[in-house]
């Protein structure tokens, strides 16, 4: 029963999301795209986090995807849509190769290494002047779908849906048990027969594919990229903040966090032209202080308390 009703909600929500272009103008659609991009990154980051591995390399894979897609179109004459698939696969292959070395690291050392890798990607793109355009970046001959707002929105939405779908699959499948077991107690997970490394590698590759794909969608939607745009540290820090503010170890948490921060940032900007980022920073501080489990965690707690209260009344 419970399962069914939540399926209905999901279906309704998806239809609403798909139908947005019918009643929203170009500006909200543009903002929505940016929020959805961060949302997908936040969810994909959270997927790896469920194993306890904290990646600081989101921007690295995002940027790698951006460049793979842009250069495939520019240097290889690839079809833009195909280049998104190519970029996702490229990010996956890179993650697979790197994963063998870096997934053996734990905690902060893993985080630092992913961060360092991101910087290395950036510097390489920065220095390969003839191939990657150097610091000035690359400009594509045209934007995908001729820049039509609804089409760009749906493309981004498709990327987001795919991410959500994979994340839910992670939640419902054997992956969930395995990753949670690794996070909670690696030694006992190992002894109970979970092949830790394989699961980590799968999770790392899949999340990297998703991040690379979002990077490719971004670059095709804006028609250009530079090392500083593609590997912007904000693509690492904001998804992290969003996931935490929404509530980690879930799909819905990062989504809620992305909506909160994404809307807050755009809204504050219009209300307070000079100095809106001060308020933005304070919002992050306050949410972390007063909702340590995130928005979603707070909701979960409130519901638990209410059902407890309801039970005692009966």
């Amino acid at each position: 029963m419970k399962l069914k009703s939540s399926y209905i909600v999901v279906a309704v929500l998806s239809v609403i999301a798909i139908a947005f272009p019918a009643f929203l103008g170009a500006y909200p659609l543009n903002v929505a795209r940016s929020i959805m991009t961060y949302m997908a990154l936040a969810i994909s980051w959270d997927m790896l986090l469920r194993s306890g591995q904290i990646s600081f390399g989101i921007a690295g894979l995002f940027g790698l995807g951006s460049y793979a897609s842009a250069l495939a179109v520019l240097r290889g004459g690839m079809d833009p849509m195909l280049s998104i698939v190519f970029a996702a696969a490229f990010a996956g292959v890179m993650a697979y190769a790197l994963g063998f070395a870096i997934l053996r690291l734990r905690s902060m050392y893993f985080s630092i290494t992913t961060l360092a890798l991101m910087e290395i990607f950036r510097i390489v793109m920065h220095n390969l002047h003839d191939f990657s355009g150097g610091p000035e970046g690359v400009v594509l001959p045209s934007v995908i779908f001729k820049g039509a707002s609804p089409a760009l929105y749906w493309l981004c939405l498709a990327g987001l849906f795919l991410t959500i779908g994979v994340s839910w699959f992670f939640e419902k499948s054997k992956m969930h048990l395995a990753l949670t077991a690794i996070r909670n107690d690696e030694t006992s997970a190992r002894s109970s027969g979970v092949n830790i490394f394989n699961y980590l590698l799968i999770a790392f590759v899949i999340t990297s594919v998703l991040q690379g794909m979002m990077g490719a969608i971004q670059v095709q939607s804006y028609g250009f990229t530079t090392p500083d745009t593609a590997f912007d540290a904000n693509f690492t820090l904001l998804p992290l903040a969003m996931a935490l503010l929404g509530g980690i170890h879930s799909t819905i948490g990062p989504m809620a966090g992305a909506v909160l921060l994404g809307v807050a940032s755009e809204w504050l900007k219009l209300k307070i032209p000079y100095g809106h980022l001060v308020v933005y920073g304070i919002i992050i501080i306050l949410v972390i202080l007063f909702m340590p489990q995130g928005l979603f965690g707070l909701a979960r707690k409130a519901r638990r308390e209410r059902s407890k209260a309801g039970a005692s009344h009966e």
Partner: peptide, 17 residues
């Protein structure tokens, strides 16, 4: 991670202030 993001918020606020 909460402490990390908390200090991230602090960093934004201080810079922008």
């Amino acid at each position: 991670l909460n402490q990390l993001i908390l200090t991230f918020g602090l960093a934004i606020s201080l810079t922008q202030l």
